[in-house]
Design a protein around this nucleic acid. Structure first.
Lengths: 212, 212
DNA sequence: GATCGCCTCCATCATGTGATGGAATCATCG
DNA sequence: CGATGATTCCATCACATGATGGAGGCGATC
C-alpha cells in the first residue's frame, strides 16, 4: 500500500505535491516554528483550508517534508556510491564531494532541514525516527571505515558526521558565508568543493596508506 | 559610557543578568521563533512584564544575547591565541581544538546560537552586524593562513569556516549525535576532539611543510 | 440533467504570544 | 516618618496563528 507521501511524489502537478514542494522550501528557510501555514499556502496560491485538507496538521506536513528530503538524500547517496565503486580512496572522496556538493547546492533545503533538525529543538517532540544512523552506516562503508554498516564504531560515525556536516555547512550557510567572501555563487560553490577536498581528504588517505 | 549589556554582565546577580543568562540558554535551544518570552520569564521565575521592563522587545533581548555570546567567544579565541603563540602549526591546532572544544561544550548555547544564525532565517530581519568576519580574520592569522587579518583571501576564509563549524557541529549536535554513538558525555567530547584533530590537522600541516 | 464525491474557499473560532497600563511593593534618603 | 524612584506583578489588550465548519463549485458517472 502506497503512502500519501509516495502518491504525492508521483504526480508533481497534484495539489498535494505542489504544497509539499513549497513546504520543503519554506520550512527549510525558516524552520518549523519560523514557518506559518499561511506562508506556505500563500506561496502555493491557495487557501489555508486547502492545505489542511491535504496534509492535516502543520506537524504532519513537516514530518512529511522530513521524510521526503530523507528519501531524496538517500537516493543521491546511492547514486554516488555506484559511481565511485571500485576506485581508490582519494578519488572516491573527491568525486563524492563534487557530486554531493552539486546536488545539495541544487536542493539547499535538504541541508537546511537536516541541520536545523540537528541543532534546533522543537517545542513539540517529533516521533520521527530520523534515518541518520543508516546514512552514516552506508557512508562509512563507502569510505572504507567499516565492513559492517549495521554496527559502526563510534569513531567512524564521528568521522562520517564531520564530513557530511562540512558539506551541509557550506550549502546551508551560503546566505551568511558568501557575502563574507565576496564571491559570486558559482565561484563560491567551486571554492566550497576545493576547500572540502583540500581539508577532508588527506587525513583519510594518509591513514589508508599507513594501514596497507 | 557603558552599555546596558556591559552593566548586566558586571553583576551576575542582577535581574538583568539573570534574565540574560536564561535567555542565552533558551534561545540557544529553541531558536528565536521557538522561544517565547513566557518560557524565559518562567525559567527565571519572574513575570513577563519584569522581563519587558529590563530588556524591552523580544528582539532586543535576542540581539543582546547575540552580542553577549560574541563577546564571550571572542575572548576565548584571544585566550587560546596567547597560549598557542610561537608553537609549531600542528601543535597550535591541536591545542586550539582541545581548548576551544572544552570551552564550547561548557557553553553549548554559544555554538547553538551561532549555527542557528548561520542556517536559519528570522522572519524579521536583524540589523546586527555579526562579527564573524573579524573572527575569521583573527583565526586565519593564528593558523598562518594570512598576514593581513583585515583582508583575508576567500579560500582562507572558507578554510577557517570549515574548521570552526566542525567544532560547533559536534557541540550543537550533541543531542542528536551522541545517542547515535551510544557514548557517555565525556567519551563523546573526547571522541569529538580526537576526530577533529585527526581530520582537520593533516591537510594544513602538509601544506605548511610543502611551502617551507 | 441528476447525483455523488472530491476539492476549494470564506468566515470564524480558540489559543498562544508579544506587549502594556497601572497598582502594589521595596529600597533609599532627607 | 514621608517622599521619591526603582522594581515587580496582576490584569488585560491586540494580534498572529493553527485549525474547523459549511457552503459552493467542478467533474465523473449514470
Amino acid at each position: 500500500m502506497e503512502t500519501r507521501l509516495e502518491k504525492a511524489r508521483k504526480d508533481p502537478e497534484s495539489m498535494k505535491a505542489r504544497i509539499l514542494a513549497v513546504a520543503r522550501r519554506i520550512f527549510g528557510e525558516y524552520g518549523f516554528h519560523g514557518t506559518t501555514t499561511r506562508m506556505i499556502a500563500q506561496d502555493v496560491g491557495i487557501d489555508i483550508s486547502t492545505l489542511h485538507y491535504h496534509w492535516g496538521e502543520k506537524k504532519d506536513l513537516y514530518e512529511a517534508v522530513i521524510l521526503d528530503i530523507n528519501t531524496d538524500l538517500r537516493r543521491s547517496l546511492i547514486d554516488v556510491e555506484t559511481i565511485i565503486h571500485g576506485r581508490p580512496l582519494a578519488e572516491r572522496m573527491a568525486i563524492a564531494i563534487d557530486v554531493m556538493t552539486d546536488y545539495l547546492f541544487a536542493h539547499p533545503e535538504v541541508s537546511n532541514l537536516i541541520l536545523l533538525r540537528y541543532f534546533g529543538k522543537t517545542r513539540h517532540e517529533s516521533s520521527l525516527d530520523f534515518k541518520v544512523p543508516e546514512f552514516t552506516g552506508d557512508i562509512a562503508r563507502s569510505m572504507g571505515l567499516t565492513n559492517d554498516p549495521k554496527n559502526i564504531p563510534p569513531r567512524a560515525m564521528m568521522e562520517v558526521l564531520t564530513v557530511m556536516n562540512a558539506l551541509h555547512n557550506f550549502v546551508s550557510g551560503e546566505n551568511f558565508f558568501r557575502p563574507m567572501t565576496g564571491l559570486q555563487r558559482e565561484d563560491y560553490i567551486l571554492a566550497a568543493k576545493e576547500t572540502l577536498k583540500l581539508i577532508l581528504i588527506p587525513a583519510f588517505v594518509e591513514r589508508d596508506r599507513m594501514r596497507s
